[in-house]
Design a protein around this nucleic acid. Structure first.
Lengths: 360, 360
DNA sequence: CTAGTTAGTTTGAACGTTCAATACAGCTTT
DNA sequence: AAAGCTGTATTGAACGTTCAAACTAACTAG
């Protein structure tokens, strides 16, 4: 379909003919050069370069069962428009490309739908592995893949269950801990946490960073936290709820930028300019956070992507030891300070006044 | 690699044996059922269902030269974190899946790099087609693909050159026109346009919608427009520049949400609450716009994705007429009104005060 | 001088699919 | 009765690659 009316694409056979060697020798030049004499190798390489020969993946796949294809699922974009996911996907694709792998994407609504997608993909393509995002407690997908003995990594820890598989994750607790400590250092004493509903591993992990920081500084946590949905409106009302308590918080650390922006909007509405009397810090370094001048915690997506690929490679190259211990990689996020975090220099700056540009 | 220590996957051969027919008959049941008697067909279908047989793509591809794979390029995420691109990719993947196609993504920095990626991809996989985004004037990619006679669609018009290829785009002029008319209807009389630097097809197209709307309403445009980069900071200073003129604007229509938010931040800083004395409308329906309560123009990404797939299908199925006229699809965007657009009900509402939730 | 090793190369087969050609039975037409 | 359809089914070949085995020549060891 794709190559209509153009010179036939070169194959091993045609290259071999031109270089006056056999098919297999050409193949060896590419896959096992040490088996070929220098003299021959050079001759073959010249022909390859001249004709622009590239091995056809379909042939390789058919013979070897490897496709050099990894599959990544796309979550249904929510309130945050999939910004983190997109950054991760971009990084992953870029790095996979450098290692000779291509990235196949698929969508799936539920765990079950996703599993049946796996079955299709595995039946049809000989995928070299999967990269999953959005792991959650009771994740059926990882259990299934584990059972089928299929190479995969998750970007996100196996919340709840014991880790039978390799994973890469960002240390949310650490990030929130750093954010909380920053606020404490700025003099805030009643630091609240706006989190997600019970049962979210990610949310609970992030919350724990806040708890630890408060405990370490002998600050209260009681009555200073609310669990709420990941929407602006929910963030606003969670914030409002805490403000009505007898001794309200003076700073908010949030599980996400979306909720943080909700809180911030409420504070602004009440004239409590964030940055002076009140501080807010979010999580995920969304475009909206940058636009609003909201301090936040950024995930190291590029490193996460590389780490995922390392894990996959390990799974593919060395299934030697059957009970190989899975890799577990935890990366540190980075605190990005903008004018919402009590920086004196920017005190009282109105919302969205911050210059863009990320750090500092 | 993927199927270690599990029952051998079923093949045409094994299914044929079990159903007591030949390979080809099984193949026909799937690809040309009208050639098979009902009796036989049912028997074969039963075996297929029971064994979970799925044709292996590598075999099909090798034989037919079709891979059921379409390739999509990922742009390097910029200020906007690739939100529109991600929405489009998700929609495209979802719809491609329904039609039996999978989506392969790749990254590329420049036109030239992208072209050499095409060469790799085409050499290695038998791609069924490409979907390009981010078309621009003097796009080398489309010229190359056209020359090579490779099926592709662009999401974005072929700015500058005549359309030799099929494309799908969103009518930016129409969207900005609607935004401008809305403001005019609200009583604003000096409507400014903050656009991108010269040479951007997308930017100039959007600008033309503003010009037309102003002309139709006998409103001035002279001295009411600035060209600037797609950053918050640039948006702010562009806005500042216009405010300093002898007769400053009373509303801003912007080529992008990023610039609109920049403008808005400046207005807020000067106490010119958008929504009352001043209005601002952006473009792209980013998460930040939703968070800030910024009115904006949303692109119909799902329809765009479907349209792209329709074009590709046409290119693949019917290369009958050699000089087939390319498809050109222009979709209407949707104006999303929030409290930045002079709605009386929300007048004076501080920034970020808007409830989320999209339209209305 | 024979047997054994090594480096370099070739050959046949196989991966799973579909195309093209062929076979055969049961009809209809001449 | 021969010839020609039509509907159904099978067979051999081919797509481009790599694996496994075989081959050759040159050199080494006994």
């Amino acid at each position: 379909m794709v190559r209509s009316g153009r010179p036939a694409r070169p194959t091993l056979e045609s290259v071999a003919r031109e270089a006056a060697v056999s098919r297999q020798t050409v193949s060896n030049v590419l896959n096992a050069p040490h088996l070929v004499s220098d003299e021959t190798r050079r001759r073959v390489e010249a022909v390859i370069a001249r004709t622009g020969y590239r091995p056809v993946k379909a042939g390789q796949t058919l013979r070897t069962g490897r496709s050099y294809l990894i599959a990544v699922g796309l979550q249904t974009p929510a309130e945050d428009r999939g910004e983190v996911e997109h950054g991760f996907l971009h990084a992953l694709t870029e790095r996979a490309q450098l290692r000779g792998f291509r990235t196949l994407v698929y969508t799936a609504g539920s765990d079950d739908a996703e599993i049946s997608t796996y079955e299709s993909l595995l039946g049809e393509y000989d995928l070299d592995g999967f990269v999953l995002t959005g792991t959650h407690t009771g994740d059926k997908r990882t259990a299934w893949l584990d059972d089928q003995n299929i190479p995969f990594v998750t970007f996100g820890r196996p919340w709840g269950s014991a880790a039978r598989h390799s994973w890469v994750d960002v240390d949310g607790a650490c990030g929130v801990h750093a954010a909380s400590r920053h606020l404490i250092g700025r003099g805030y004493r009643r630091i609240a946490f706006l989190g997600w509903p019970e049962g979210s591993g990610v949310g609970d992990d992030r919350r724990s960073g806040w708890e630890a920081a408060c405990r370490e500084a002998d600050l209260p946590t009681n009555g200073l936290t609310v669990r709420t949905d990941n929407t602006l409106a929910a963030g606003r009302s969670a914030c409002a709820q805490l403000l009505e308590s007898p001794s309200p918080p003076d700073a908010f650390v949030c599980v996400s930028d979306v909720i943080a922006l909700g809180a911030w909007s409420l504070l602004t509405a009440r004239g409590l300019a964030p940055g002076s009397s009140m501080a807010v810090i979010g999580f995920d370094d969304s475009a909206a956070a940058a636009a609003a001048g909201l301090s936040t915690v950024a995930q190291p997506l590029a490193e996460a992507a590389s780490a995922c690929l390392d894990c996959l490679r390990k799974l593919q190259d060395g299934p030697t030891a059957d009970a190989d211990a899975p890799d577990m990689v935890l990366l540190e996020p980075r605190l990005i300070l903008r004018d919402s975090a009590g920086d004196a220099s920017l005190t009282g700056a109105p919302l969205l006044l911050a210059l863009p540009g990320l750090p500092r």
